[in-house]
Nucleic acid binder design. Structure first.
Lengths: 134, 134
DNA sequence: CTTGATTTGTACGTATGTATT
DNA sequence: AAATACATACGTACAAATCAA
């Protein structure tokens, strides 16, 4: 339950509740969340607080939002294995918006940056890539 | 300049401007950004729009915010090189809030998940780690 | 050390726009 | 066409942390 007298912010409390439902499997990948309006009414919160809660989950990569559609639990795409070469170096970071568009990855998903010997860095979508050391 | 008649959302336009200043070096790591109130007044925006703009940059890992303090351009910690072993598998994702606290990493920074042979997955902070293939 | 000013955080409300169902 | 759902954008008020006088 969301406790208006607790120290923790209301939208963080709601995010905690929803995150638990996702991690416990009560909400499975592909399942839609209740609408913002419904969540606001059932938890006694403003729609603003609900929006902030769901934005937190979006930025953690747990849910996807699309205007007009419902919000749903992110599905885990099959991971493509990318084999590293000896000496390759790998970093990770959040993509720019342009990179998100190019790679078709949603908010809350990081990218791999693979630096191979004597070549330009390669980008891989974080959620659909597993790197394997040689 | 922020164009109120443009198709792009106002807070995204402001985020674009600030992101350009960071990437061009006009704002260096450690530099503070103007306050939300100042940005709102100088760009003719509401403080709400400014807050959303800066939140975008925070979630891209470009700036750090702390209540009471200013918002500043994130400094790049020196990267510690972690050597992979043959067959190791690596994934990347956004950390949970608990993991962020444990590893001391800010909003907008992903983590490496390294699966070594016959052992529990290890977590590494994304911004301060470079993985190297053997 | 205390006070007051500054800055970001939380939470609410309203209105309108756009995309999907 | 109508209803639903998320997006943008404005406003207000107060709280909490920090900073500077």
């Amino acid at each position: 339950m969301v406790d208006h007298d607790a120290d923790r912010a209301l939208h963080k409390q709601l995010a905690d509740l929803l995150r638990d439902e996702i991690n416990s499997g009560a909400l499975s990948p592909g399942d839609v969340l209740p609408s913002e309006l419904y969540l606001a009414q059932t938890h006694g919160l403003s729609q603003t607080a609900v929006r902030r809660a769901i934005e937190l989950l979006q930025n953690e990569g747990l849910v996807t939002k699309r205007r007009g559609r419902r919000t749903w639990v992110r599905e885990r795409p099959p991971r493509q294995v990318v084999l590293l070469n000896p000496g390759d170096e790998v970093e990770t970071r959040m993509p720019t918006e342009a990179e998100r568009r190019q790679l078709g990855i949603p908010v809350g998903e990081p990218v791999f940056v693979v630096r191979r010997h004597d070549s330009e860095p390669e980008l891989f979508a974080g959620a659909s890539t597993t790197l394997r050391a040689p």
